[in-house]
């Protein structure tokens, strides 16, 4: 198709695409390149203090094991959260797309999207109220369970995972739902009429056909979770130091923008590398 575009079509396409590219340039490319520029300076270029070009901000990452350790911690967190989102979200999407019809589906769909309508900070603080010692969850369990129940979930890595899964679950459900919705019911019927069992249909038919949506959802969750800082800070307590919180510290607490920018670009590079390495798998799944 693309090869058959006439000159006029090309010009029209360029005109139609221009606003999108202009927006990308203004909103993504320019701020990012400013940060990239900062990351090679000795100090943020505000004021009279002379600044010089340097690579020391990038070198700082390799000088101590702290940053690499934190990055690995954040990647593990990303894998945990993505895994939990898939395990919870995919079955939800499956039920929504294939089992429930009519008004009930609309209502459930609304419930899925509802978290998106509230501010993420409000959501996380609500979790803090639920999870903390003597909080809503502890009291509710105490009321129905004999004996003294103390979950002590607040300020643990588990609390961070719970908060992040709740925040990002809708991505997996929505993308999986769209992919599942597109599967023709007749194909499933055909498989069933040929004697395939339910698990076989799910494993050999539904899952491969909906994999593009599931993988897109997984990527949408993994990438922001690796850089997350607000949820670990509030829910993680002394375990809540991750790569993202250290970047935030550079910008907010110690005012070392160049180091913060350099750490951010290292994160970007590592995430791109991970996606690049897994791209053969992703591409096969997307087809």
């Amino acid at each position: 198709m693309a090869g058959t575009l006439s000159a006029g079509d090309g010009r029209r396409a360029a005109r139609l695409l221009a606003p999108a590219y202009l927006w990308l340039t203004l909103a993504v490319f320019l701020p990012l390149s400013a940060m990239l520029f900062f990351s090679f300076l000795t100090a943020a270029p505000f004021g009279d203090k002379p600044v010089e070009a340097t690579l020391s901000n990038y070198r700082a990452f390799f000088e101590t094991s702290t940053y690499a350790l934190l990055l690995w911690k954040s990647i593990k967190l990303g894998l945990w959260v993505t895994g939990a989102c898939i395990l919870i979200g995919y079955p939800c999407a499956l039920v929504l797309a294939k089992q429930i019809r009519g008004r009930a589906r609309e209502a459930l769909f609304l419930l899925v999207i509802l978290p998106f309508w509230s501010n993420s900070l409000v959501r996380i603080f609500s979790w803090a109220i639920v999870l903390r010692g003597n909080g809503v969850l502890d009291r509710a369990l105490d009321a129905v369970w004999p004996g003294d129940v103390r979950l002590a979930l607040m300020f643990t890595p588990a609390a961070v995972v719970i908060g992040l899964v709740h925040s990002y679950l809708p991505y997996v459900i929505l993308t999986s739902y769209l992919a599942l919705q597109a599967i023709d019911d007749d194909i499933v019927e055909a498989a069933r009429s040929l004697g395939a069992r339910r698990l076989t249909i799910l494993w050999r038919l539904v899952l491969p056909l909906s994999l593009p949506g599931l993988l897109a959802g997984a990527v949408l969750v993994f990438v922001p979770v690796v850089g997350s800082f607000m949820e670990p800070r509030i829910l993680g307590g002394r375990f809540g130091t991750y790569y993202g919180t250290v970047i935030e510290d550079q910008f907010v607490a110690v005012f070392n923008w160049p180091l913060g920018a350099a750490l951010s670009f290292i994160l970007l590079a590592v995430v791109l590398l991970i996606l690049g390495v897994s791209s053969p798998v992703l591409r096969r799944g997307m087809q």
């Binding site: 903390r132 010692g133 607040m154 307590g237 002394r238």
Partner: peptide
Amino acid sequence: QIRTFWSSENDWNQFMAAGE
């Protein structure tokens, strides 16, 4: 020994009030 870190007076009051 540490339960969590605090960063503002408001944090501190909340943790104390919750008996943490």
